[in-house]
Nucleic acid binder design. Structure first.
Length: 510
RNA sequence: GGCCCCAUCGUCUAGUGGCCUAGGACGUCGGCCUCUCACGCCGAUAACAGGGGUUCGAGUCCCCUUGGGGUCACCA
């Protein structure tokens, strides 16, 4: 670990005490959905803002018009909102500040930090291809770097289009910055080519826009992925040429797939979109909790954090340096996403206050047309008690309408394995269950204890193991092979429903 | 190929020279519990990429090799 904790260097020009308010930003480009990598970036920025009492600015980098539709912007906003990551300013739209970007480019030309370049795209591409195949460094050769004003004028008169390039000083030495997670990062001036900052159609490029916007938004800390590292050295040059203070950078490690490829919707599908997790019944905070653990840890053994705990524990210095792997196997029959993500979600599912679970289930049930308004009023107690009863073996909110369907509706499916094992193997049940229903009906009160007593009594009279009756009921009444203690289930279902279903046993043999 | 970054169990990770015969979590496999399954609890499995240094002592510092990743656009 080198220089990791050194505060020196040009990136730190403020004393702690006079440190201005922390301002961080999340600048997604509109892609129609929030990528989990983006969500993780947003989360760390959000945490840092909360931790320091600073501000999080949301800025949509929409300078690529093609993909900047309002729907694709909403996709990003929806994802952030669902995760509970709120922002203090914005969303700002980069496209609205084109004048700022161009003014900055003009300023750079005036100050001799940039120049017009008339090389054509085709020329450059062929040079680049040649360099690539020759396996030598691919850099702009500086053809237009020292054009005289006369030469420039002549070309402009001739109508030759030009781009604006940043003029990297030809000198020995390095540009560098002190990265909060990586330590001192340096790159030789000589290794940096004169990069384009404005296109020939006068549209400014990301490298410039990003810096100009960050200066205007008074961003103090840039927390982003390591894939931006080569941008950073060039951007430091831009800050300096523009006479602006350089923010503090923190480059977080990337998240890759099992083959160590970048995860993308193109190659991995919906699994990379935050929306997928919402649709699959994830608890928003559980996803955040999982995501933050990819490349960060508190330094002790804790892994589950409330919001407040995470904010308290968070620090840039504890962000790791190694890329992590999103442990997901396509078509895994057991885990539809990273097993740890599911484990964390399950943990929240069984430990959160039941009323909060109830709230999420309500939303889900409304979508599934399983909701009844009296679950909020007269049957609220029953509703929550039932959720409490069944949540322990569930992994997502969606499980309440799938495996838990029998508690809330009659159109539940019977698990074939369960059917074979607990029902078809014991054809006598076709006679026994209606009889058991009668016994239940005759009970003074129908509750866990009385139902158990009646069941065991009958089993004893028949000379069979109680399990035959119990497991048969589990299949018939819940459709499941496994579940909560059966007498709790009976109580939750209620006498009528139990009796009706027991009498309908014959249907399973057809 | 140039430049930059990285390297501990299958996965997420702890580890800042002696507390490491390397800890935790997820997963996996056993066991207890039990009407089933789960939870819970108990136990097991499994890692310092390789080679040189430095040091009394190295997972921890240095160098090399290997491996992986990022990036090299008039995308963001």
């Amino acid at each position: 670990m080198k220089n990791r904790h050194t505060a020196g260097g040009r990136t730190c020009r403020f004393k702690e005490s006079s440190m201005p308010e922390v301002r961080v930003r999340f600048p997604p480009s509109p892609t129609g959905y929030l990528h989990i990598g983006g969500a993780r970036t947003a989360l760390l920025n959000w945490l840092f803002a909360k931790k320091t009492g600073g501000k999080l600015i949301l800025r949509i980098e929409d300078t690529d018009e093609e993909r900047s539709t309002s729907a694709s912007i909403d996709g990003i906003l929806d994802g952030l909102t669902w995760l509970g990551l709120d922002w203090d300013e914005g969303p700002y739209f980069q496209s609205e500040f084109a004048a700022d970007h161009l003014r900055a480019a003009e300023q750079l030309i005036q100050s001799g930090h940039a120049y017009k370049c008339f090389c054509t795209k085709e020329e450059l591409e062929s040079k680049r291809d040649a360099a690539m195949t020759a396996k030598v460094d691919v850099k702009y050769d500086g053809t237009c770097r020292n054009l005289s004003s006369k030469e420039i004028e002549a070309r402009e008169k001739a109508g030759i289009p030009s781009v604006i390039r940043f003029k990297v000083e030809k000198k020995e030495g390095v540009v560098g910055y002190d990265d909060k997670v990586l330590g001192r990062i340096e790159r030789r001036y000589d290794d940096i080519e004169d990069f384009v900052i404005v296109r020939s159609n006068s549209k400014p490029l990301y490298l410039l826009c990003n810096v100009v916007d960050d200066i205007r938004d008074r961003i103090t800390h840039v927390i982003r992925g390591q894939d931006h590292m080569t941008n950073t050295t060039r951007q430091v040059l831009l800050y300096e040429a523009l006479g602006a203070p350089v923010p503090i950078f923190a480059h977080m490690p990337l998240t890759l797939d099992l083959q160590k490829r970048k995860i993308s919707k193109r190659s991995h599908g919906e699994i990379v979109a935050v929306q997928f997790y919402r649709d699959r019944g994830f608890i928003p905070w559980a996803l955040c909790n999982f995501l933050v653990l990819l490349g960060w840890n508190p330094g002790d053994d804790r892994e589950i954090f409330s919001r407040e705990e995470l904010i308290e524990a968070f620090s840039l210095e504890r962000i790791g340096r190694t890329n992590s792997i999103f442990n997901y196997r396509k078509d895994d029959p057991k885990f539809f996403t990273d097993p740890k993500a599911i484990a964390i979600n399950s943990h929240y599912l069984r430990t959160m206050p039941i009323a909060e679970i109830g709230h999420m289930v309500k939303k889900h049930f409304q979508e599934q047309r399983l909701w009844h308004d009296d679950y909020d009023t007269s049957r609220r107690e029953w509703f929550l008690a039932t959720l409490e009863l069944i949540r322990e073996r569930f992994h997502t909110i969606n499980d309440f309408s799938a495996g838990g369907r029998a508690y809330f509706a009659d159109d539940f499916a019977i698990d074939p394995q369960s059917l074979a094992k607990n029902i078809l193997k014991h054809p006598e049940l076709i006679g026994w269950f209606p009889q058991l229903a009668e016994r239940f009906s005759a009970l003074q009160v129908f509750d866990k204890e009385s139902a158990e007593a009646a069941t065991r009594e009958m089993a004893e009279e028949l000379g069979i193991k109680p399990g035959i009756l119990i497991n048969g009921m589990r299949t018939l009444l819940t459709g499941q092979l496994a579940g909560p203690g059966m007498f709790d289930v009976l109580a939750a279902l209620g006498r009528e429903k139990v009796a009706t279903r027991l009498k309908g046993i014959y249907r399973l043999y057809k």
